[in-house]
Amino acid sequence: MARHTGKKRVKDSVAGYKLPKYSVLMSVYDQELPENLNQSLESMLKQTYPPSDFVLVCDGKLTNELDVIVKSFQNEYKKIFHIVRIDENVGAGKAVNKGIKACRCEYIVRMDSDDVSKPDRCMKEMLLFAVMPELDIVGSFVEEFDDFTDKTISLKKVPLVQKDILSYSKRRNPFNRQTVAFRKSKAMEVGGYSDLKLCEDYEFAVRMLANGAVGQNIPEVLVRYRVSESTPEIRRSWRLTKGFIAVRWKLFMEGYIGFRDFFPPCFLQLMLFVLPMRFTRWFYRKFLRDTKITPPTADNV
């Protein structure tokens, strides 16, 4: 397992702005690969502006290999590393809710157990909160990379400012879930994540926005998202299709979206399920991803 590299850390103030302290919140279950969890934990604990609190939710009993990694990090970061264990797997939404309650800081940075954050991710997100204290939820672009070769495959962009975020949220998640950071108090106010088994991150983002949360995305890649050979199959699976339609039906019944925003995305998801795999690959490359390797900046968004 990798250990501290001695990389220089930034102070708790940047450009005259005092950076708020933050908690990192991650959940893991027994299907995670140990090497992926290790890399993900390293990427968050070695941030240039490090966390003051780290909450790891173990969603059900972990394998021995995963437990070894968890205990190793707990021993190395005794002052900030806290483990919340759940006896049985309850799903991402319920697991994250337990983690939110356990977080000690007002600002919470979410992280998946198999992705990799850039070293300055948290510094940039906390600086945005410091510069714009009215914000409740922030995120960034992500870079998808091949799990086997480590090569960048594509970029996933999201809208940047509140007006565009609200409009985009009618059709899709306006935040890359791997990059989200939010206020604990606002998340608790809206009831946290739902018990949905899939797409709970999208439903959470919409509920935050519907209850007055102000959001913004940073036009930079701050997280690398791991893509494997099974990813296209997951994207077109019946399980994900049902989950996607269920969330959109919920938003439709609550009045957040109308029929024009409900039907087309659901129809398209059904087409991805029915049509051959090559169509799913083509569609994501053509319409939902930027396959240019050069990372986007504020000048070329």
Rank of each mutant, 00 (worst) to 15 (best):
A2P: 02
R3S: 00
T5N: 15
V10G: 02
V10Q: 02
D12Q: 07
D12M: 00
D12A: 01
D12C: 00
S13K: 12
V14A: 12
V14H: 11
V14Q: 12
Y17I: 03
Y17P: 00
S23I: 12
S23L: 11
M26W: 04
M26H: 01
V28Y: 00
Y29P: 00
Y29L: 06
D30E: 08
Q31S: 14
E32V: 15
P34C: 08
E35V: 07
N36V: 06
L37V: 06
N38L: 09
S40I: 05
L41E: 05
E42Q: 14
E42F: 15
M44G: 09
M44N: 13
L45H: 05
L45S: 04
T48E: 15
P50S: 10
P51F: 00
S52Y: 08
D53L: 04
D59E: 06
G60S: 11
G60C: 10
K61Q: 13
L62N: 11
E65G: 12
E65I: 10
K71E: 15
F73N: 07
Q74D: 10
Y77A: 05
I80V: 10
V84M: 03
V90Q: 10
V90H: 03
G93C: 13
G93M: 10
V96M: 10
K98E: 12
G99C: 09
A102E: 01
C105S: 15
E106M: 08
Y107L: 12
D112K: 11
V116M: 13
V116H: 14
S117Q: 11
S117L: 15
D120E: 14
D120S: 12
C122K: 11
L128E: 11
F129G: 07
A130G: 12
P133E: 11
I137R: 08
F148S: 07
D150H: 09
S154I: 04
K157S: 01
K163A: 05
K163E: 09
D164T: 07
D164Y: 03
S169P: 03
R172N: 01
R177F: 13
T179Q: 09
A181P: 03
F182C: 06
K184M: 04
K186D: 03
A187G: 12
V190T: 02
G191A: 09
L196W: 06
C199L: 06
E200F: 04
Y202C: 04
E203S: 07
A205Y: 01
L209F: 07
G215L: 10
Q216M: 14
N217C: 05
E220Y: 11
V221K: 06
L222E: 01
Y225L: 04
V227P: 01
E229N: 07
S230D: 12
E233M: 00
R236H: 03
R236D: 02
R236K: 06
S237Q: 01
T241P: 03
G243F: 06
I245V: 13
W249Q: 08
E254N: 06
E254P: 00
G258D: 04
D261Q: 09
P265V: 07
C266P: 01
C266V: 05
Q269Y: 03
Q269L: 02
L270Q: 09
L270I: 13
M271V: 09
P276W: 14
P276K: 12
F279I: 14
W282F: 15
Y284W: 11
K286H: 08
L288M: 13
L288F: 10
T291S: 00
T297N: 04
A298Y: 08
D299K: 04
N300L: 08
